[in-house]
Every structure is written in C-alpha cells, then in structure tokens.
Amino acid sequence: MKGKRHLYWRKTRRLTFALLLVWISVTFGTTWFARDINQIVIFGFPLGFYMAAQGGLVLFLVIIWWYNRRMKKIDIEFGLEDE
C-alpha cells in the first residue's frame, strides 16, 4: 500500500518537474534570446515579439492541457480518479 502511494507521488512529481522545465525554457529561455530571434519573421511578426505576445501563451495552455491529460491517466492507473 505504502509503496503504491509512493509510486503515485513519484510519477506525479516527475511529470510536474518535467513540465516545469519546459515552462522555464519557454518563459525565460526563448525570451532571453528575443533580440536575436527577432530577425526571423513569422506570420508577419518578428519571432521574438511573436513568442512573447502569442506563441508562448499558447504553449502555456498546451503545458496545462498535457498535465491534466497525464494526471488523469495516472489517477486512473492508481485507482485515484474522482468519483
């Protein structure tokens, strides 16, 4: 019992930290190089501007969506789903 709980928490934690890393690289990584990637033009926008104004935000949404999907699976795997 205890071991199974432990595994659930380990899986949750691993997913959380992996996605957190993705988030950090989007939020701080791309932004750090905004000046350099501004040379590239995408949909008429300079890329650095685009990432800060739209691209990054959509990626944030994708991160949360992915997290929810994976967590739902993990919950079911461990019989912890709601209701």
Binding site: L19, W23, T31, A52, G56, L57, I63, I64, Y67
Partner: peptide, 14 residues
C-alpha cells in the same frame, strides 16, 4: 503579457 499568463502554469502544476 507573459508574466500574467505564465503564472497559471505554476498554479496548475504546483
């Protein structure tokens, strides 16, 4: 724009 939306990823994950 980034800060006020990115924060919700922290809310979701943490």
């Amino acid at each position: 724009v980034i800060g006020w939306t990115g924060g919700f990823v922290l809310v979701a994950l943490l």
